[in-house]
Write a protein that binds this DNA or RNA. Structure first.
Lengths: 241, 241
DNA sequence: CGTTAATTTGAGACCATTCAATTTCGGTGG
DNA sequence: CCACCGAAATTGAATGGTCTCAAATTAACG
């Protein structure tokens, strides 16, 4: 399938969960959307806001986060092109966390009502959407395990494994190389570590020849090794539903 | 509404999310289910299993957990009566984590196909179900924050705040007293701490007059204090959708 | 090419862990 | 009703992984 329409990557992504009719595909393509661009670290959604629309990433990375009362930040997930960063807001209405762009980002903003209408009228698409939010949920569960029970090396390794798999799935790998714009501080905020310790942990992983990571480029040198260090089992990503 | 039917608590719970017609209510009540009882620590669902049914708690507590390769355990959520412990399995099909009973437990087991059929035929119920899974998801996000960024006192306090709110909502409080069958080891597995440190942390919370917890009974003595220690903001529970 | 952001390094402090032993609790049978 | 037992809770002391604070180095960008 060649991508002639900006929403085709979404069609392709969702059609892995449910087989779509031509009508289903067209209904997705006909979603009214507004294209928005965000610079680095811009807020796409704010906690407590009434959510008027859902944001699909066309280009760039985004992340969800929550701020503690003492100013500490916990990153809750990272998102890559073809993914909605806040599909749940289409249903729940009020945002329970923040969403920020990680780098320069292009977003297709779809109104809540259009999402709901599509779900109402297209059973197959509705199920794909539900599955999408459920896989999200599964990833959060795995993150609870990651920050709750694994040591620093395993946490970082596990996170990298997850992102590598997800990037591969959208065809974002270039022969083992990945554009990887996360700073060490963001890696730290996602794993519940400090930036300093994240730095030392990455050095340890590099020293063992598991990976290279610099200048925003990640190269996995020893996938099996990284997987083992991270105690990584991709079942939770539900690649085949 | 008086509970004449065993599934009425579920009807009541879901009807907070969406207004139901009489037909909707009856459709829920007519869900075919099998009543099962489980002793303490029995497995209700196992990771990797093809899920044939969804389990609604009629009595008792349950929890979801994942095991690491080194045998460590992370508890991912607790569940109380009126809640499904694995509604997502109705859609995803394959269980990505374990579910265990916490104490003596009565479950209504509903087949996947019945869940799906109900969702297909009853738009309002379908939305309530989706909302249920999305609130689940929101709770997982908050747990990532809890184990990722808070210190031991805040983690325990936050978890207790959440359970208190949820127990109150199903009317399980008896004038500030709660049946609270969690062991310190389970509390530890849920907060990413050790049982020993959980013990010392609980003592610290008791010493400050925030709560009493012994013999499976919890009494909150200083709700505002506990809330503050736990950095607790209940927005994420989405009480009003 | 200057300026700021990001990464790296060092040393000391601390929160939580580990390991081991003791006490209390809850349930059971005599 | 009490003695007994295993599970749960509690205590102590030593260890250790991660944090904190501060400074130096390197990379990114206009």
């Amino acid at each position: 399938m060649s991508d002639v329409h900006p929403l085709d990557p979404l069609v392709r992504r969702w059609s892995k969960y449910r087989s779509f009719s031509t009508g289903d595909r067209n209904a997705i393509r006909e979603l009214p959307y507004v294209r928005r661009t965000f610079g680095k670290d811009a807020y796409i959604v704010r906690e407590g806001e009434q959510a008027g629309e859902c944001s699909l990433i066309l280009r760039g990375f985004a992340y969800r986060q929550k701020l503690l009362s003492d100013g500490d930040r916990q990153i809750i997930s990272f998102h890559i092109p073809t993914e909605f960063v806040d599909l749940q807001n289409g249903v729940l209405g009020i945002a329970d966390h923040n969403v920020q762009s990680l780098n320069h980002c292009e977003i297709a903003a779809v109104s809540r009502s259009a999402i709901i209408e599509l779900a109402d009228q297209r059973p197959a698409v509705r199920m794909a959407m539900w599955i999408d939010t459920l896989i999200d949920s599964s990833i959060f569960r795995e993150w609870v395990v990651n920050v709750g029970r694994r040591d620093s090396r395993a946490r970082i390794a596990h996170l990298l494994c997850e992102l590598v798999i997800r990037l591969q799935r959208i065809g974002a790998d270039r022969e083992g190389l990945f554009d990887f714009p996360l700073t060490q501080e963001q890696l730290a905020d996602a794993t519940g570590l400090t930036a300093v310790h994240t730095n030392r942990t990455l050095q340890s992983l590099r020293r063992e020849g598991l990976l290279q990571l610099s200048n925003g480029i990640l190269r996995v040198l020893d996938w099996e090794g990284l997987r083992e260090v991270g105690d990584f089992d991709e079942l939770y990503l539900h690649q085949q539903v």
